[in-house]
Design a protein around this nucleic acid. Structure first.
Length: 277
DNA sequence: CGTTTTTGACCGGCGC
DNA sequence: GCGCCGGTCAAAAACG
């Protein structure tokens, strides 16, 4: 071992430390980005629903959910629909439902979605062998948000989380290391009548890599009855931030307007927080 | 010791 | 009124 070799090792260590710090900073910035995305999440989801209604049969072919581990289904229902007797709750209460494919061996009803929740009850329901857990948001004293988590009766590997209410406090934006995280995918909301197992091709994906400080926004749009060369839109942001975050957000927003499945990618990103163990 | 989880009791809506 | 059911309460236990 000569001293030169020693020095080079030391340099390597310093390099790694520098990179680590760089990654930490980038992680912080990603947190900010996720915060922005979270803020828009609700409007994006409602927009997604609109788009799906508008696209109708066109999308059925390409938006068919694929069955994979970590798949998420996002649906949303507000109580402003028909004048049913059931609509007794406050008209403001909105229920968002997430279906998350989990490890079947995992029997817990815990979803790490970034918020702090206090469990206040658990019930076995009639139509489902697995119990339903009731949580209240404990991040702020008066936060009215509640969530119910239960495994699906027909597929116990799918966790269904129903969120109710609106947070009265800023949501956490932590995107900290999803160690050992499985890849999560969104199942597009689909009519219950059709349950085909045709593979679902993700039109967009955002991968926030922990091992390498690179954000990849793959906004490639799958052709929906589209002939010819389809426009590929891919924004690759390296660690030196060649484009600003604001521009990035604008890219996301503008791509949303053109790509109805962008919400898929957004929820994908958010869902990565669901499964931290 | 403060916070969270567990779990049986309780409550209100609904159908009969 | 009664029973069923989903949702919530609250005391005790567990946890960090």
């Amino acid at each position: 071992m000569d001293s030169r070799h020693h020095v080079s090792v030391q340099e390597k260590v310093m390099d790694l430390e520098a990179e680590l710090e760089r990654m930490s900073r980038e992680n912080e910035k990603l947190n900010v980005m996720l915060g922005l995305m979270n803020q828009d999440c609700n409007s994006l989801r409602s927009r997604l629903m609109e788009t799906e209604v508008a696209d109708g049969d066109n999308n059925k072919e390409s938006m068919i959910p694929r069955k994979r581990k970590g798949a998420i289904q996002v649906t949303e229902s507000s109580s402003s629909e028909d004048s049913n007797k059931k609509m007794r709750e406050s008209p403001k209460s909105k229920v968002s439902q997430f279906c998350l494919r989990t490890d079947p061996s995992d029997t817990s009803l815990i979803l790490r979605d970034g918020c702090q929740w206090r469990k206040y009850g658990q019930k076995v329901t009639r139509d489902n062998p697995s119990p339903r857990a009731y949580y209240r948001c404990s991040m702020a004293p008066g936060c009215p948000v509640k969530k119910k988590v239960q495994r699906r009766a027909d597929d116990s590997s799918i966790l269904v989380a129903a969120y109710e209410g609106v947070h009265t406090h800023p949501l956490p934006t932590s995107l900290d290391a999803p160690d050992g995280l499985e890849s999560l995918d969104i199942i597009r909301p689909e009519p219950l009548a059709s349950a085909p197992s045709t593979p679902f091709l993700p039109c967009s994906s955002i991968s926030l890599s922990n091992s390498f400080p690179t954000i990849t926004l793959d906004l490639t749009q799958t052709s929906l009855n589209q002939e010819g060369p389809r426009p590929e839109r891919e924004a690759r942001v390296s660690s030196n931030y060649s484009i600003s975050q604001q521009l990035l957000v604008q890219i996301l927003a503008s791509s949303l307007t053109r790509d109805p499945s962008f919400t898929t990618a957004l929820a994908d990103t958010i869902s990565r927080n669901f499964f931290r163990k």
